[in-house]
Nucleic acid binder design. Structure first.
Lengths: 394, 394
DNA sequence: AGCATTAGTTTTAACGATCTAATAGCACGT
DNA sequence: ACGTGCTATTAGATCGTTAAAACTAATGCT
């Protein structure tokens, strides 16, 4: 096996190996077992190749399918098969090619793959402006998604947009030049134009958030907010609280209504008098949360516990409580939502969303969507349970 | 308007003719009264066009250089020139091609461009795990960078890594398959292995953060932390404060030391007695900030103002002050750093980093780095001035 | 023996852009 | 008339990959 010995001795270093193999090309080929059949055609072709290689004497060249093939004395398609359809290749050949791949560190160029297959392994996600859609949560989600995606061979591409319409434009732009595999949307809401647009265009996507109002038609993953505030409320009731207030967003927000329902269910299930459970609506703002808390504390029969739709509001309540010289968790309980870093910092009990699981579900759903197996369930719909992170405040 | 209109459409509005032919398919091709009016040359060309179109009956096909060229009756290269080197094309031809481009909505496919030019217009940025490197700031930077990048035709690709070594691995991985144009690094520090690795491999990159310790060798943009805490301190001194404490990170952190220097400079410049300016070091933690503030307030000669290296520490101080029934800004002043949402929420004066400008500088630096004009200054080094956002607390 | 089947490999053709010539048309000077 | 230089345009090769077709041996079946 002269040819084989030659190739194996040629490597050791990726770059030099390639140069060596190139210059040794024709000889190795003629020494191979298939020498008789090769004939003049091959030598002509390889002469061209050799001269082309000679033009780049010692430059750091990236290995390609062709260069790997040359070094392993097979055709480039066989190398491709080793990677994409190993069962087509004889074991011995496969091992030989795999050795060259390992030595040269060959990796297929995405751009070429994308051009050919129309798959880029790129998924696009919006990055909201700071302050929008509770930035910290989205950031954590982005991180989880990126991590999970890269484990599955996908990468996350960012884009920005100020509102849904701009976001749809952004989709169009992105699809215009990049060959995206899919989108991941966040913050779905009733009558979401983005999902209908994407569906009309038959573009694969998943949403973090249920298709509020409409019935699916696309895969999604979401966190059960009602469950979250139900266990929060149950926790408070179990601790002896009988007047459990709810500080939340105004009615009409899908997520807010869902969470409030959980509080209501828990109160009802425990047989707490409905009129004894005060509730105030407000925007997602610390000052408003604080004011609302103050108002309730000053009422005739003040609540002893506050369930809040967000950590922002909860921190407002927490601030009001401490500023009165009361101790959160002892004198008045507070529970927030989202388990933000601020909550952790001050010791606020909060409902944590399992973002890793959400990201996981998103990628799994996308994989199914993009894989050709067509007897999968039509769409993944995953509703995950949040968990209560107990700290001092409740 | 049959004969005349048709001839003119063949010239000026070949595009719409093409569109029609595409959708209406073979019928339009065979039914045309063109036989009578059109010359031999035109008919030959159009016959070619029609037959080519007929092969794609009604499917939604993406326009390509070739299809646009056909519709405009020019070669594909001319279309390419219209886009990439318009000065090479005659005005009339250019307009005709541009019309077709506009009508078909043609946009070059990035994958093909990338394969040929080795430029993907993709820049990679890390997304840190929640909690790391003051997540909120990085998130805001990511947003600014994405926005700015997409204005310049670039897109941001995310990746994750737990530490510098993992990050270098991630670079290698990314470069292995995607054809990235550049990296943007954040959180540079003395002896940063990442920058030396990238330089050794001659990979274009910019850093948000100075090359602490070493002298450049790569473009960077950063915010002048010393300046920030100098103006913060000056503001306090101007307001009459004579004992201005500094709560910061332990010595040895590049950013922390820089900011502390600003406070020192301002104190010295104002002739404040050095022994009267207390200072405590601590980790970036709210509780530690609070404890440090308490300790100083309980000292023999308590400070009346606190300059803090971060909003986290400042919020700790703020919490301690309010919990004593004191009013921040009136009884004791506090200034933070980074202008976080929490600072905005509670009314904490803070030094704001001009992230939009940083992002801008990064993209500008990258453009220069990637553009072939070689008589640019070797590397952009941009040091930006933060600004003091006045709120209630100082 | 003759022929179909199969496994393993190679050959040829795309994918859609850019780059490097080559070519046609035209004005100019001699 | 003829080469020269310039402009506008085209033709062909190429980037690195995958898909489909073609080919070569070896095997099985009648």
């Amino acid at each position: 096996m002269t040819g084989k010995a030659r190739t194996s001795s040629a490597e050791a270093q990726a770059a030099s190996a390639e140069a060596q193999a190139a210059s040794a090309g024709p000889r190795a080929a003629s020494a191979g077992p298939r020498a008789a059949s090769a004939g003049p055609r091959t030598s002509a072709a390889e002469a061209r190749t050799a001269s082309a290689q000679a033009r780049t004497p010692s430059a750091q060249v990236r290995p390609t399918l062709a260069s790997v093939a040359r070094a392993a004395a097979v055709s480039h398609q066989t190398v491709s098969n080793v990677i994409n359809a190993p069962h087509l290749v004889r074991d011995e050949t496969r091992r030989r090619v795999e050795a060259v791949i390992a030595e040269t560190g060959y990796r297929p160029l995405k751009a070429a793959q994308t051009l050919r297959t129309r798959r880029s392994h790129l998924i696009a996600v919006i990055i909201p402006a700071p302050g929008e859609w509770r930035g910290e949560l989205h950031n954590a989600f982005l991180h989880a998604l990126t991590r999970r995606a890269q484990k599955s061979g996908y990468r996350v591409l960012l884009f920005t947009a100020a509102d849904d319409n701009e976001e749809i434009n952004a989709y169009d732009q992105l699809l215009g030049d990049y060959t995206l595999d899919a989108f991941v949307l966040t913050g779905t809401h009733s009558g979401d134009r983005r999902t209908s647009w994407l569906r009309r265009k038959r573009i694969p996507f998943v949403t973090f958030g249920r298709p509020w109002g409409s019935t699916a038609g696309h895969p999604w993953a979401d966190v059960d907010g009602a469950y979250g505030d139900r266990i929060a409320t149950e926790h408070l009731i179990a601790a002896g609280h009988r007047r459990v207030a709810f500080l939340g967003w105004p009615e009409g927000s899908d997520v807010g209504d869902d969470r409030r329902a959980g509080w209501q269910q828990a109160c009802a299930a425990a047989g707490l008098p409905p009129e004894g459970q005060p509730r105030l609506d407000m925007e997602d703002d610390l000052a408003q949360g604080r004011a609302a808390c103050a108002r309730l504390l000053d009422a005739a029969e003040p609540p002893t516990a506050f369930v809040c739709t967000s950590d922002t509001i909860a921190l407002g309540a927490w601030t009001e409580i401490t500023s009165r010289g009361l101790i959160p968790g002892t004198d008045a309980a507070v529970i927030g939502f989202d388990d933000s870093s601020a909550a952790a910092a001050v010791g606020l009990t909060s409902v944590a969303q399992p973002l890793d699981e959400v990201a996981d579900a998103c990628i799994v759903a996308l994989s199914k969507l993009l894989s050709p197996s067509r007897r999968n369930p039509p769409y993944d719909r995953v509703l995950l349970k949040p968990r209560l992170v107990l700290r001092g405040s409740a």
